[in-house]
């Protein structure tokens, strides 16, 4: 079973590469392989010229400080038995970057940065809503001042109004800290508002990659076109036209 098969792309410093695809397309697996949370069977992942797939032990640990992840589900990705403060401090402890006093100050600063009230550090994750939990997850990801953050469906479990808060926050943090994002999502509208460039995945392969504006306005591949036409847009008039175009496209995909 090849979940990801011969995928090649690069991410430039300070940009957001959006990775879109339907379930099972291999987009999350690609993200995990970049972070070496999963080891690819073959191929190469380079981070600032360093080959990550060959790294082990301490040198890999050192590299991991610079690459973090924000997960989809803020309910299952935060340890329910740890306080908010300890969750955010954990990366600092694991990588022993500061003493206790510095850590406490750093945790408060991080929570403040992501718009989470720092006076709640002694509370537990279950006391907070999905949006607030995702802020905790983002603060944890920022703790070691990483260069790259893989955002794996960071807003798909959230309501629209909360989703907007988190997307705006992620953009602000990128501007503030010069972060590079690999932004993985199934929602093409969300990816559009976040990405400089976009890669479209299907069946473990990248079918199209390019400037976001261009991929959305001039999709080259039939698959990308079908995907874009399937997205419901909040405009009943435009929806009528899209339905027509969509049915024709589906027909030609089925025939071809």
């Amino acid at each position: 079973m090849h979940a990801v098969d011969g995928v090649s792309f690069d991410i430039l410093n300070g940009e957001t590469l959006g990775l879109v695809g339907e379930s099972g397309s291999g987009k999350s697996t690609t993200g995990y392989c970049i972070l070496q949370l999963m080891r690819p069977n073959s191929g190469s992942v380079r981070f600032e010229g360093v080959e990550l797939t060959e790294l082990k032990g301490e040198s890999l640990r050192r590299m991991r400080r610079r690459m973090q992840i924000v997960f989809q589900d803020p309910y299952s990705s935060l340890d329910p038995r740890m306080t908010v403060g300890n969750i955010v401090a954990e990366p600092l402890i694991v990588h022993s970057v500061s003493n206790r006093k510095e850590r406490r100050a750093r945790v408060r600063e991080l929570l403040d940065t992501v718009g989470f009230d720092p006076s709640f550090t002694n509370r537990y994750p279950h006391e907070f809503s999905g949006g607030q939990r995702q802020r905790i997850g983002i603060a944890r990801a920022l703790a070691l001042s990483p260069d790259l953050i893989v955002c794996d469906e960071p807003v798909s479990a959230l309501d629209v109004s909360i989703q907007a808060q988190i997307l705006n926050l992620l953009k602000d943090l990128q501007d503030q800290f010069g972060l590079t994002y690999l932004f993985i999502a199934h929602d093409l509208s969300v990816v559009r508002t976040m990405s400089d460039r976009i890669a479209v995945m299907n069946d473990g392969k990248i079918v199209e990659i390019g400037d976001a504006q261009y991929v959305y306005s001039h999709p080259r591949e039939e698959y990308t076109r079908a995907l874009l036409k399937a997205v419901p847009i909040p405009d009943p008039r435009k929806m009528k036209e899209r339905k027509q175009e969509r049915r024709q496209l589906q027909k030609s995909l089925a025939d071809g």
Binding site: A164, L167, D187, V190, T193, D196, Y216, I233
Partner: peptide
């Protein structure tokens, strides 16, 4: 409606 990301908004990012 304002909170929804627009797929056909040319201002994109």
């Amino acid at each position: 409606l304002g909170a929804l990301p627009q797929i056909d908004d040319a201002s994109g990012r």
